[in-house]
Amino acid sequence: MVLNIFTDIHNLLLEYMSEEATHITELILIAAAYLGIFAILGLLLVWLERRVAGFFQLRLGPNRVGPFGLFQTIADALKLVSKELTGTVKADSQLYRIAPYFVITTALMSLALIPFSQEIQAFDINIGLFFLTSVSSIGVIGIFLAGWASNNKYSLIGGMRTGIQMISYELSVGMAIVTMVVLAGTLQISEIIELQKDGWFIFQGHIPAVIAFMIFMIAGTAESNRVPFDLVEAESELGAGFHTEYSGMNFAYYFLAEFVNMFIIASIAVVLFFGGWLSPFGITDAIPFAGLFWFTIKVIGVIFLFMWFRWTFPRFRIDQLLTLEWKYLLPINMVNIVLMALMVWLGLTL
């Protein structure tokens, strides 16, 4: 049904313009749609975070603007749009202005690979997961540039910490993904989901898959710079960390990108471990929009786990952060890959 809509639009465009022009127009349309998804996702997740945080902290959270306070974040975004873009005199103005776009561009590029349902995936290449991990590594440059170009000691410390943290934990995220790729035998996201029709990978790969999932969740939290790994922002020590000097919409870009990155990491977890848009036991395979529904439900479940971490655990010290990665996660991860390879070789997967 969704496919029909897409082919209808394609045919409609072909009637009025040439094949190349149609292709370009479609690309622009998809880009616009993804920009919309980016904004809506960011705003919705900020609302969800604040509401969930309220319940965790024995409060109610935003509940005044619109039903259940849903429009609160829209009001906040409007406020941020209308604010003046300030900067410091001694900042490296070119880098300072360009830095937020690194972050949102990489978030948007990763978003293109997310399979919202069987039909809705903008960019499905055979090295999907590899592309995803490499693209999301570029995001750190934006944060690093922001810390450097602000010419502010707190920003710089925040940026340096980002460098340390992202480079360390990217290893764990990558190796947890590799563990699941060993099981799947492919990097293409749509194929990975197809392979889970008989059982999600967390059940197919049982013990090593569960260990990989736990490592992925820990490292994913660190990758999205969330509590307990928020040394980058560390309000009590660094003001606001790397985005101390940013205001208005430039700040909002960082803010939204952080939440969209969380969504992307949750989506990867859902794709790798919980069968993407597949329904449990294939109960709703016949219904056209069910894939979107199941994908959203699963992603919100994983995001809720991230939020649960955030409002429970205290922040790490920088040495504890590195100890956790290099002395615990990495060795366990390496053993886990070998274990998974052995299981696949001996045919012990379910």
Partner: peptide, 27 residues
């Protein structure tokens, strides 16, 4: 210990989600 912490906060969240029993703020 992490799971102990998550159990406590989880209890607060789910009770508040359905009943608002532990919510201490006044409207």
């Amino acid at each position: 210990t992490l799971l102990t912490g998550m159990r406590i906060t989880g209890k607060y969240f789910f009770v508040n989600l359905f009943t608002r029993k532990y919510v201490i703020t006044q409207q």
